[in-house]
Design a binder for these strands. Structure first.
Lengths: 235, 235
DNA sequence: TAGATTGTTAATCGATTAACAATC
DNA sequence: TAGATTGTTAATCGATTAACAATC
């Protein structure tokens, strides 16, 4: 919808997410990236990247695995193992060059380009996320929003369109990622439509477990379950 | 702040969360609950509970591990193992009684009582969450909200108070859970204050890894990282 | 009883950690 | 060189799955 200042990412190659039997790895990456990084490691790489951002801001030039691990809240051995999966990045006896390491992680996580995302379901949570500026800050742009019945009031600067516009917008824009916030009862149906239209990754806020082809990546965020889980352990 | 219709939960006994070395179990529970359920299992119990809710609505009376597992997106063996951790609940040769199983899970997850929660940090995301009705629907009530500089406009019906009010409100209300949405730079400091004031569980949306005593449960939700993770696998 | 399905044990798998040789 | 710290291997740990005896 809008034209971002950073270039968009037009890439290929889908991959899988935790589905019962599949190994939790991803094979076949774009050139320059290690071929096989476990999902949990990728997640932690994002974490390390954020810690490194702080260190760059603090003008720190070298960091040891012990120091970075402590900030990130992991064991040094795990950090080294995770980073080793990205190729040899440190200098024995010295540590890691902060800027170099950050750049490499950004490269691996493809942070160079602005990623176009659509949001589907502009109910309570959907509107909340629409007005959340955190995504933009991290390189994601919500380029369009859809709802069965678009609300009159618009939360952010993005207009909410009727759901029937979804297919053309996805196709025309070559969009690959979607944030799903529809009610649980509609989630599977809408997700099927999204995949049909060409979406390869879904961040699912709906309280429903989606059954989709393994080629589609799905991450599930359920705020109620997070709280419920906490409340169990908070006694 | 408001007086909920369901009774509040006044309980004791804190417990730990994933900290480097601790076993990912929880020892010592209130009466009537199995003593030792792994964290990941507790998480999935919430999932099963939601699936069972649908089945109750559909008037299904019996469900097999195979059927429930399929809906929840897990393996039947895993489901049986998870449920077995809650005591013997099924009938061999038959399956599980839907209502009975749901009731038992609600009991274990303490869904009977309305849980009081405070929200700290009413910036972009904080305000969004304040206006999110999903929490209430699942038995959590945000009873107060705080910010360094309370915004003039109030998002929901909860007024945002200045941060200095935090301690008295937590103490007086006997609040045990908090949702943390302050900027990364302030997160650790505010978290320390919360723990000091008596908070035992924190749902942390701030982009900072918190270092807290093991007696405090922390769940971390980072929307940007979720998206970044997806974008890695979406090719 | 025969058929079905749980609860549980043993086997597998994957992820984390400790330890140390390589090397800066 | 001596000291430090990585990259990596081997050991440990925990979680998942397969298989089956118990039993409804």
């Amino acid at each position: 919808m809008t034209s971002p200042s950073r270039p968009r990412n037009g890439s290929s190659r889908p991959s899988s997410e935790k589905s019962a039997r599949t190994p939790k790895r991803v094979a076949g990456m774009a050139a320059g990236t290690p071929s096989d990084i476990p999902k949990k490691t990728v997640y932690r790489l994002s974490l390390y990247l954020r810690c490194l951002g702080l260190m760059v801001a603090n003008r720190e030039s070298i960091v040891s695995s012990a120091a970075l691990a402590s900030v990130a809240g992991v064991q040094p051995a795990q950090l080294r193992r995770d980073l080793a999966a990205c190729g040899p990045l440190g200098k024995r006896g010295t540590g890691y060059e902060v800027v170099l390491l950050r750049n490499r992680l950004e490269e691996i996580l493809r942070r160079a380009s602005l990623q176009a995302v659509i949001l589907v379901g502009a109910g309570n949570l959907g509107q909340a996320l629409l007005s959340y500026k955190g995504f933009a800050r991290e390189g994601f742009e919500i380029v369009a929003a859809f709802d069965q019945r678009p609300p009159k009031t618009r939360a952010g600067k993005i207009p909410v369109q009727t759901m029937s516009r979804m297919l053309p917008v996805i196709t025309k824009g070559g969009i690959r990622m979607a944030i799903l916030c529809v009610p649980g009862a509609a989630a599977q149906r809408v997700a099927d439509q999204l995949v049909e239209a060409g979406i390869h990754a879904i961040l699912n806020f709906s309280p429903t477990v989606l059954h989709l082809p393994e080629t589609v990546a799905v991450n599930h965020v359920n705020l109620a379950i997070e709280l419920e889980n906490l409340s169990y352990f908070a006694r």
